[in-house]
Amino acid sequence: MLGVAVTDSISKAPPSVWRNPWHFLAFGFGSGTLPKAPGTWGSLVALPFIPLWQLLPDWGYWLMLGVTMLFGFWLCGRVAQDLGVHDHEGIVWDEMVGMWITLWLVPEGWQWLLLGFLVFRFFDIIKPWPIHWIDRHVHGGVGIMLDDVLAGVFAWLTMQFAVWGWLWVRG
C-alpha cells in the first residue's frame, strides 16, 4: 500500500522535476515530490549538508547562506513561473535554506541537528507575524523564499539562546 502512495504522489509531481535541473534543485533533489509534508522532507534533505557547511569558517558559512538565498530568489521564482503556480508545495529549496540559516553557528552533533530541525519546522508551520503576512502578501521568488528565510532567522535566534544556555549550564 505504501508503494502505491509513493508512486501516486510522484506521478502527481510535475514531470519536469526529473528532466529539468532547475526544477530538480527547487524540488530539493526530488524530495518535494514525496508524499505528505514536502516541506518537512526538504528540511530533512538539508541536514546532511550541515556538517559540510560547518567545515567552512563562520564567514564562509555566512557567504554560502547569502549565495543560496539570492540564488533561491531566482530559482524558486523561475520554477514557480515555469509551473504556473505561485508557490508549488513541492518547491522546497526555501526550506533547505531556512534549515541552513537555523544551524549557522550551532555546535556539531546530531542533537543540535534534531533540535534545529524541530525548531525550524515549528516556525515554518506556525508562521508567527511577520512570517504569515509575508507568506500572504509577497509574491514571486522573493515571497517563496522570504517566509522560510524569516522562519530560519526566528529558529536561529531560538537556537542561539539554546546554545548559550547550554554553554552557561556546562560552565
Rank of each mutant, 00 (worst) to 15 (best):
V6Y: 12
P130S: 15
M69V: 13
V119W: 03
D135C: 14
G140V: 10
L55A: 13
L113T: 03
W100A: 00
A80E: 07
W62G: 10
I10G: 05
R136H: 14
L150C: 09
A5H: 09
P21T: 06
H88C: 04
R170Q: 15
P130K: 12
N20L: 00
L105M: 13
L70P: 03
V97F: 03
P38A: 13
H88T: 04
F71P: 00
I50E: 00
V92M: 06
L114F: 12
I10N: 01
I101L: 10
G109M: 04
I134V: 15
L65N: 03
W129Q: 14
R121C: 04
W133S: 10
W110F: 13
T7F: 09
I144C: 09
F71C: 04
M64C: 08
F154A: 12
A162G: 11
L150D: 03
L75T: 03
W93C: 00
F122G: 06
L34P: 04
M96P: 00
V67G: 04
P48Y: 00
M159I: 05
V138K: 06
S16N: 05
P107Q: 09
W53P: 01
G42W: 03
G140I: 09
T102E: 02
A46R: 00
L118S: 07
M145S: 02
W18L: 08
W18Q: 05
G72K: 05
H86P: 12
I134G: 11
R136P: 03
F122S: 09
D124C: 05
G39I: 07
D148V: 03
F73C: 07
K12V: 09
G60H: 14
S9G: 10
Y61V: 06
Q111W: 10
F73E: 06
G28A: 07
H86F: 08
P57S: 15
G28C: 05
L103G: 03
W166I: 08
G171Q: 11
L56I: 13
